[in-house]
Amino acid sequence: MLDVTGLSKSFGGLKAVTDAHLSVSEGQIVSLIGPNGAGKTTLFALISGFLKPDEGRTNFLQTDVTGRQPHEICQLGLVRTFQVVQPFANLDVRENIAVGAHTRIANRKLALARAADVARLVGMEGTLDQPAGDLTIAGRKRLELARALATEPKLLLLDEVMAGLNATEIAELVQVVRRVRDSGVTIFLIEHVMQAVMSLSDYTYVLNQGVMIADGAPKDVTSSPEVIEAYLGHGAAERVAKMGGANA
């Protein structure tokens, strides 16, 4: 469904992403992990059209979307959320979600009704009339998800929707993400919360300093020495192995 080949981007002298290859097939939940500053969000921005790559291509549903505008890519069915939540603060939750719904629905009343449906899917039906600016961080993360879902995407890019949430909220949101997948939306997510990555993803890519260093099933990937060293520093893999625990 999504095929990224040789995507590269530098900012001045800094190579944010170098020759990234990845593919996401329909119906999967695929995750992208890596230490802070690895270039994960940059890669998302390149795929969703917010940044133009220096090299490489992005194919979505057999269409070349490299360098297209974000709104065009969204209309094709690929939508992203933001790591730093971007609510329309002066609008209430229903109106926020309706903005997403308007991508497919011209009629205002129908869009507002659709917003209420989507809110139910992510468990926000109780806060429909609250201003988005008054939501808790967990609420805002859900709102990001809801707005993106309202555009009726085929592929959803979730950028750290679990960050900053407590264990209960994470467990709830994991359920929500699963429900979204089961409703027929393919999901590609960036996540630091390993509990969520391990339980959700079918496949995992690991990015470090802009380079894809590993990919595979989540369990295999997290025990790979290269990945452990990327997270914990040079020589860490050896020490972890000595301690006999592969649970990095």
Binding site: S48, F50, Q69, P70, H71, C74, Q75, V79, R80, T81, F82, Q86, P87, F88, A89, N90, L91, E95, A98, V99, G100, H102, T103, I105, A106, N107, R108, A111, R147, A148, A150, T151
Partner: peptide, 24 residues
């Protein structure tokens, strides 16, 4: 009361978020 207005307000509130949601 229209889609145009909802999209216009969305652009006012946050242009990047609006673009991500398919608004030109």
């Amino acid at each position: 009361r229209s889609r145009f207005g909802a999209q216009l307000v969305a652009v006012r509130e946050n242009e990047d978020a609006a673009k991500a949601l398919g608004i030109n």
